[in-house]
């Protein structure tokens, strides 16, 4: 079998322990549920908490990531401010891809939620349902995405900011070029019968980005309505690009 590009091998090694992440987030949510009646979060609030905790894991992963860890904090912040929602959505989509079901969603905690349950949430729920449905559709249309491609795309998302916005142009450009080259090499060698899989994956990634922008706007709208729990990383990231 053809070799795996070194960049991808390194990224695979840096993948967080799923079981650990799951356990930590579950424990956090259970702590929320243990609170008194007046402090208890709504279902939507719990989902926000889940996203918030997943963000912590994402930041931890980024910190140890090749190239990223060489950057100054200023540049690291810019990269994460640019891509945090896309990373969250991408993580969610990949999970649905593995879950492989059209009418239910698998959460980071391992819980499965039926689409009908989501549809039954208090109004306005149509946007939630639309976003979730689209994420599942995106997952299903991308039925061939293996773990090597997943880690490489995740890294590309992390470094998807135009380098002109960063201090360390050289390092960021190097990261982008190496990751693109690795993905191209990998897809050409491992899926020789798939016409131009590399370009298809990048086009698909653009759709993931579009969905994440939509989800962010929706979340911001919910925040202005006072429905998103405050004082957390999620809110901070939401505000980072909006003065």
């Amino acid at each position: 079998p053809p070799d795996i590009p070194e960049v991808i091998l390194k990224l695979l090694q840096l993948e967080p322990d799923e079981a650990q992440v799951k356990a930590r987030i579950l424990a956090c949510l259970q702590q929320e549920q243990g609170k008194g009646r007046h402090e208890k979060l709504s279902t939507f609030g719990l989902m926000c908490k889940m996203a918030d905790q997943t963000l912590f894991s994402i930041v931890e992963w980024a910190r140890s990531c090749i190239f990223f860890k060489e950057l100054e904090v200023g540049d690291q912040m810019k990269l994460l401010q640019n891509c945090w929602s896309e990373l969250l959505v991408f993580d969610h989509i990949y999970r649905q891809l593995q879950h492989g079901k059209e009418h239910s969603v698998l959460l980071v905690t391992g819980q499965e939620v039926d689409m009908s349950t989501i549809a039954a949430q208090p109004a306005p729920s149509s946007n939630t349902l639309c976003c979730v449905r689209r994420s599942v559709v995106l997952a299903l249309t991308r039925s061939r995405l293996d773990r090597h491609e997943f880690v490489c795309l995740k890294f590309l998302i992390l470094f998807s900011l135009d380098v002109k916005y960063l201090e360390n142009h050289t390092l960021a450009k190097d990261a982008q070029e190496k990751a693109n080259a690795a993905l191209l090499e990998y897809t050409v060698c491992h899926y020789p019968h798939s016409t131009d899989k590399f370009r298809q994956l990048l086009l698909w990634l653009a759709e993931v980005r579009a969905l994440s922008m939509q989800a962010e706007e929706y979340l911001y709208h919910k925040h202005l309505s006072g429905e998103v729990p405050c004082n957390n990383l999620l809110i901070e990231m939401l505000h980072a690009k909006r003065t």
Binding site: F56, V59, V73, Q76, L80, L233, E236, H239, A240, T243
Partner: peptide
């Protein structure tokens, strides 16, 4: 008050404790 993303900065800056 402009958001300076203090929590993110802290998470990126902090030392790992074993």
């Amino acid at each position: 008050k402009k958001n300076n993303n203090a929590l993110l900065r802290y998470l990126l800056d902090k030392d790992d404790t074993k």
